[in-house]
Computed example of a mutant assay.
Amino acid sequence: MAERKASRTAVLVCQGRAVADGRMAVGRFSDPVAVELLTAPERVLVEQVRSGVAPQVFGDRIEYGLLSGVSETLATRTVTIDDALRDRGNTQLVILGAGLDARAWRMKELADATVFEVDQPASQQDKRQRLGERTLLAGSVRFVPVDFATDSLDAALAAAGHDTTRATTWIWEGVVNYLTREQIAATAAVVAARSAPGSRFIITYPAPSVRNTLGRRIVRPLWALARRQNPIADEPMRSTWTPERMRELLDANGFEVVTDIDQLTVAQELDLAVERGPFLRSGRIVVADRI
């Protein structure tokens, strides 16, 4: 992940949630805060995709297609994560790589919870400016700035007041694919060390997919041809995981897998008409509880 500037990917994810709000999985997915965190120029593409009318200009069409696909991803994984979060009801929530996540401002179920948002300092500064004086629905939120290249996640959480004697729900959404296996293992070890019995670990991760790997390679020159900035160009895919390997990682850190589901299955259960089924099939969400 880009470490010394606000994340463009965080904006893309926020735009995806804004596109999906009120249009996908209505009654199960809702994020009315997302659009309010976007600047006026960032909302233009959101409204274009929500209209369902693809633009004619080549570069605009590429941006339209990317955001349309992201919205399908965000709707399916957000429903699954939010359900798992509500089901556990822990009073500590740690969001690793929080970006422009709005759960603390949109989920009334967090009224008794302390939310720890972990992210790069520049990204957190950008988010706090976007939030302004927005009303918090969570009991409290603590921003935990961590430069993952130099800082200790364990020390940063301890300094922020995270209590290792209380059960915690951990959300690691849309981050694993940008990290090496060594980085993932190191973070999982910190999570394990700080998780009391009853804690829950929710992770989204990419399964191996030749189709998706080729697709990412093919689309790169298209961005250049369109003279547009690829929002994920600086965040290359660094690891993929089979469900078996993910289970081994969680088992080794004292977590027992409760569910591990692909996002296409989620979309089908939600009766969503999606255009990027193969891409969704390779995206997975695992929920594991502290043994």
Score class of each variant (00 low, 15 high):
residue 170 W to T: 07
residue 119 D to W: 03
residue 71 S to W: 02
residue 105 W to I: 01
residue 85 L to I: 10
residue 261 I to Y: 03
residue 279 F to S: 12
residue 91 T to Y: 08
residue 12 L to I: 10
residue 169 T to K: 06
residue 20 A to H: 08
residue 178 Y to A: 04
residue 56 Q to G: 11
residue 193 A to P: 03
residue 123 S to D: 07
residue 130 R to D: 00
residue 95 I to H: 05
residue 87 D to C: 09
residue 11 V to G: 00
residue 191 V to G: 09
residue 232 I to K: 03
residue 41 P to V: 00
residue 204 T to C: 11
residue 26 V to I: 11
residue 128 R to E: 15
residue 199 S to I: 00
residue 181 R to L: 08
residue 159 A to C: 08
residue 24 M to K: 14
residue 158 A to K: 06
residue 91 T to F: 09
residue 63 E to G: 12
residue 108 K to H: 13
residue 92 Q to A: 09
residue 217 R to L: 09
residue 276 R to P: 03
residue 67 L to Y: 11
residue 23 R to Y: 05
residue 209 S to C: 03
residue 1 M to V: 11
residue 51 S to C: 07
residue 255 F to G: 01
residue 82 D to M: 01
residue 234 D to H: 02
residue 267 A to N: 12
residue 241 W to V: 07
residue 135 T to A: 13
residue 169 T to P: 13
residue 5 K to I: 10
residue 266 V to I: 11
residue 291 I to H: 14
residue 79 V to Q: 11
residue 242 T to W: 05
residue 123 S to Q: 13
residue 199 S to G: 02
residue 71 S to L: 05
residue 127 K to A: 03
residue 262 D to L: 01
residue 108 K to L: 09
residue 12 L to N: 05
residue 111 A to W: 10
residue 41 P to S: 12
residue 184 I to F: 10
residue 266 V to W: 02
residue 189 A to T: 15
residue 116 F to Q: 07
residue 163 D to M: 03
residue 288 A to S: 10
residue 138 A to M: 08
residue 183 Q to H: 14
residue 275 E to L: 13
residue 196 A to C: 08
residue 30 S to L: 03
residue 30 S to V: 02
residue 126 D to L: 06
residue 66 L to T: 11
residue 206 P to C: 06
residue 88 R to F: 08
residue 35 V to T: 12
residue 130 R to N: 07
residue 187 T to N: 02
residue 257 V to T: 13
residue 206 P to A: 02
residue 64 Y to R: 00
residue 52 G to I: 03
residue 148 F to A: 02
residue 27 G to I: 00
residue 124 Q to P: 10
residue 136 L to T: 05
residue 42 E to T: 07
residue 110 L to Q: 07
residue 268 Q to H: 14
residue 69 G to M: 06
residue 49 V to G: 08
residue 153 L to K: 12
residue 275 E to P: 03
residue 28 R to S: 07
residue 160 A to N: 11
residue 254 G to P: 13
residue 257 V to D: 01
residue 291 I to L: 12
residue 12 L to V: 15
residue 98 A to V: 09
residue 88 R to Y: 12
residue 224 A to G: 04
residue 109 E to V: 04
residue 48 Q to H: 09
residue 224 A to P: 10
residue 184 I to K: 07
residue 61 R to C: 05
residue 245 R to Q: 15
residue 210 V to E: 14
residue 205 Y to N: 04
residue 44 V to A: 15
residue 215 G to K: 11
residue 51 S to I: 01
residue 187 T to V: 14
residue 218 I to F: 12
residue 61 R to Q: 10
residue 23 R to G: 01
residue 261 I to Q: 13
residue 16 G to V: 05
residue 196 A to L: 05
residue 248 E to R: 13
